[in-house]
Design a protein around this nucleic acid. Structure first.
Lengths: 338, 338
DNA sequence: GGCTGGCACTCGGACGGACAGAGTGCCAGG
DNA sequence: CCTGGCACTCTGTCCGTCCGAGTGCCAGCC
């Protein structure tokens, strides 16, 4: 086990390195943090920390920089979450309060996160799986063509065309619309399949085919839309990444374009509480020199989606975590209100 | 007026520079293009071209590179649009044919453009202004709360909440729905205001307030949604930009995040035919070292939105223009079919 | 036993001069 | 009007030197 002072040294190294972006040596450390010991002692501590794999030297005779393992220890044991200041909280609230619809909420959240953390922000649209159905609308576009519109409690709207096996009258359509809504309105997506199971039975034989078709399209929509959408922003912040640009930035940009990768990334994160994935802890190779801070958010107590930021492993973890947590909290409130 | 040979020299300079990314000298030129004259002659021509402002030297005793004015001449007079090869065309068509809905069409188009041109692609969603109404749906969510859903012929769906001044019965709602659709279905957005003008008159006095409210919300939606949405992709291609990275790439990333800027950029482009804006021709400062190639696309003959790519001024103009044109053409077809 | 000061060593980055190569402009001659 | 030749300029690179920061180790002190 590492002594208390060695942990302090590690904390100091992380803080200084995050600030200066330069390897930090024993002398500079004792000058900037009053550890109460001499550089020589710190050197011994550093050697020990290096043996344990928490820090490393880029070259012999250079200062030390934290390894992924070092950051991990820092995040887990040495640093808390820095709470937002009151003015910051107010600013967040004001900024989000102006949103007019779901798209706008997500767009604003992305901008806000990017600005606060000065990193790349990723916000997942509220997921359908855990949402409830507000209304299902059916429109007759042609005798044998129906448009199905699904409206969720998070304000999302999905539409699908349905080609019916047989012409379907306005009266039947109205009937189906009414029965369907009385069954599923207000219910969770997951429950819908069970609820509509026996619906076709109430209809005339010649209409049953169409009813089944419509229902299966509805179920498909519920499932398919688990391909969640997401929005990213703040990519310009990538330019602050490092000096060895093209090589570092390219894979990150590529990863950000692959929604699948991002969704996986957010998905892997734990369901409750904040998750921090540091460097190589990220499965996706292109993000091996970045850290991802993510957290679930949602109206009410339940998380319906996730948001987070992607930045260099050398980031201000307490500040970033504070911002992410605060934003998630307020977005949740906004969603609950609307 | 510049002699024919001098134009050839300019063309050769542009081509070589685009290929090598390095200033091109007189000797290399005569070696790679058989101009039939000696380097010394070419030097004279280059001096003339430089006097006219078509090319410039980064430093004394370096080769020449084209100026924005040089690229302009090249695009206008010296180069055509390089048509896509048959296999390329097929690939485009196959790739786009798989799209399942509007979002998917746009997403695929962005990816395709980015891949073909190896640059940043920007695709505007089909605009509502010139679209027509397919259907307007009204749903009663509460006695005095109606949800309005607008469906366009391009497959876009917009929804709005309407708080009614007075409770509004199901019967009246059905009535309004029917009358409204018989008036506006299939009509162009621009015509809608005129068409619904006298609708309230057909209703009972106590319902007129609500009808007016619904109608004005509809009109607002038509107008508001001129804040068009757009999608971008291929930002990873920015890493191929140049060597002096952070400075060049940052403003571009920032511009790309500002949808307003991008929309303006596309908007400025001429309405018909392809538009190429080179370097400083772009009003937005951050894009002064980039060129934008854009073109309108749409179902039928009419352009309903624009798409294009953003790349370094040093780009392969004929190839880029060919790809942009081809993609726009096929997207138009896809939209017309669906 | 742990902390400290001192010392020799290593290494990377900055500085500066020399050099080669590419490109130019100009001029005289075909 | 084109061409070959020539002198000139500038950049990028290579190389050697130097300096400073930082380390590891050791002997001494508390």
């Amino acid at each position: 086990m590492l002594s208390e002072r060695r942990l302090q040294v590690l904390r100091a190294i992380v803080q200084d390195y995050v600030g200066t972006e330069e390897p930090v040596g024993s002398k500079a450390l004792t000058e900037r943090h009053n550890l109460g010991v001499s550089p020589a002692t710190v050197r011994n501590d550093m050697a020990a920390l290096e043996d344990e794999g928490f820090i490393a030297q880029p070259h012999t005779s250079a200062g030390r920089i934290p390894t992924d393992k070092g950051y991990r220890l820092f995040v887990d044991k040495l640093a808390g979450v820095k709470p937002m200041s009151a003015p910051e909280k107010r600013a967040i609230q004001n900024f989000l309060d102006g949103a007019v619809d779901l798209d706008d909420v997500v767009a604003r959240t992305v901008r806000l996160l990017a600005q606060l953390t000065r990193q790349v922000a990723v916000v997942q649209y509220p997921s359908l799986t855990r949402s409830t159905v507000r209304h299902v609308e059916l429109l007759s576009l042609a005798p044998a063509r129906v448009m199905l519109v699904l409206i969720t409690d998070t304000g999302r709207v999905e539409q699908r065309m349905v080609d019916c096996p047989a012409p379907f009258g306005e009266a039947s359509l109205a009937d189906l619309r009414a029965r369907l809504n009385s069954k599923v309105a207000g219910r969770r997506f997951a429950d819908v399949p069970r609820l509509v199971e026996d619906l076709p039975e109430g209809f005339d034989v010649e209409d049953r085919g169409t009813v089944s078709t419509v229902l299966s399209t509805l179920l498909e929509t519920l499932v398919e839309e688990n391909e969640e959408r997401l929005m990213i922003g703040g990519t310009a912040n990538l330019t602050r990444f490092g000096h060895d640009f093209p090589l570092t930035i390219r894979p990150v940009l590529e990863a950000l374009e692959e929604q699948v990768v991002l969704l996986k990334l957010l998905g892997e994160a734990g369901d409750s509480g904040m998750t921090v994935r540091i460097g190589h802890e990220n499965a996706y190779e292109g993000l091996n020199s970045t850290s991802v801070v993510s957290v679930g958010y949602g109206s009410g107590g339940e998380a319906v989606a996730k948001l987070g930021v992607v930045g260099p492993t050398r980031m201000d973890y307490p500040g970033t975590m504070g911002a992410v947590r605060a934003v998630a909290r307020y977005v949740g409130q906004i969603l609950a209100e609307s």
